[in-house]
Computed example of a mutant assay.
Amino acid sequence: MSSEPTPLRNEGSHKQVILAGAVAGLVSRFCIAPLDVIKIRMQLQYHSLSDPLSHQPHTRRGPLYKGTLSTLRTILREEGVTGFWKGNVPAEALYLAYGSIQFLTYRSTTQALNTLPEKYSLPGTAVSFIAGAVAGSAATTVTYPLDLLRTRFAAQGTERVYASLIGSIRDISRLEGPRGFFRGLGAGVGQIVPYMGLFFALYETLKPVFAGISLPLESLGSGDALAGISASMMSKTAVFPLDTVRKRLQVQGPTRVKYAHRNIPVYERGVYDALKTIIKREGARGLYRGLGVSLVKAAPASAVTMWTYERTMHIIQRIEGDVDNH
């Protein structure tokens, strides 16, 4: 028997994989929505906290967040509890579609790679990396307009930029054209390829390592949870600068000055120009603004996603097995 880790999603029918992935995405999204809004607000903040000019009233056009707790308090004070779920409708649709496409593509790619002739066969970790990268790229591209809408609604402060979800789609189509829905896609794919590849490869590698750990949460699948948390945090840190660039690019366009941060710079030349500009004007720290809350978010999000996926798959298979037996 091979000592390589067995690919996680080689189990279940296409229908079971789609349903389990969708449920996992929905549950995970609802749980981490507030942290997601906080992270987006921090990533869009232009002023460097070390710049004394950023504290002058005449230079501060939007709220100045000085950390996760400050962001939380400001949103709660100015926008109420519902402010933490801004953009949740497109985000739920995003996670529903993304989870299904991601898990299905991962499963199909893994199976395809495992059917290669023996002389072209790949180690289990390499299969997981490639399948994860392909799955992430496909899911990111297909669902990107929903991701952009999620970011724009989460970036809204006390002023409403869009009256409704349908209104936002209509306005973007009219003012920015089809390309408006794909602002920052290059950064999104550039981020997700290494992220998903690293995540799945690390998860498959760490899962057997943590499998024998006995914790009070063992009944909740603590081994899977720990593997998911560790893999996600390491991968997230590696690609976080591209995530920041993606968020900055997503709010470009005619509505740029209407969001909570009204002084978001213009990035006209794409991903590379945005990276260069952020480093030049804000320092390397500007690329990692919001990393702390992102890592805090990654832990429960990944744990809930992987745990919910595997438990949902188990329930589906048990129910369908009971039906077949009758």
Rank of each mutant, 00 (worst) to 15 (best):
19 L>Y: 10
19 L>C: 12
20 A>T: 05
20 A>D: 06
20 A>Y: 01
21 G>C: 11
22 A>V: 06
23 V>A: 12
23 V>C: 08
24 A>D: 01
25 G>A: 09
25 G>P: 07
26 L>Y: 02
27 V>H: 01
28 S>N: 06
28 S>Q: 11
29 R>L: 10
31 C>F: 15
31 C>P: 03
33 A>K: 03
33 A>E: 15
34 P>E: 01
34 P>M: 04
35 L>E: 00
36 D>V: 12
36 D>E: 15
37 V>C: 06
37 V>P: 00
37 V>W: 00
39 K>P: 01
39 K>W: 04
39 K>L: 09
39 K>S: 08
40 I>Y: 05
42 M>S: 05
43 Q>C: 10
43 Q>H: 02
43 Q>R: 04
43 Q>I: 01
46 Y>K: 14
46 Y>E: 12
47 H>T: 03
47 H>K: 07
47 H>R: 10
48 S>E: 06
48 S>F: 09
49 L>C: 12
49 L>Y: 12
51 D>P: 09
52 P>N: 05
53 L>Q: 14
53 L>K: 15
56 Q>I: 05
56 Q>T: 06
56 Q>Y: 08
57 P>C: 09
57 P>T: 04
57 P>Y: 06
58 H>F: 06
58 H>S: 11
59 T>L: 13
59 T>V: 12
60 R>E: 11
61 R>T: 09
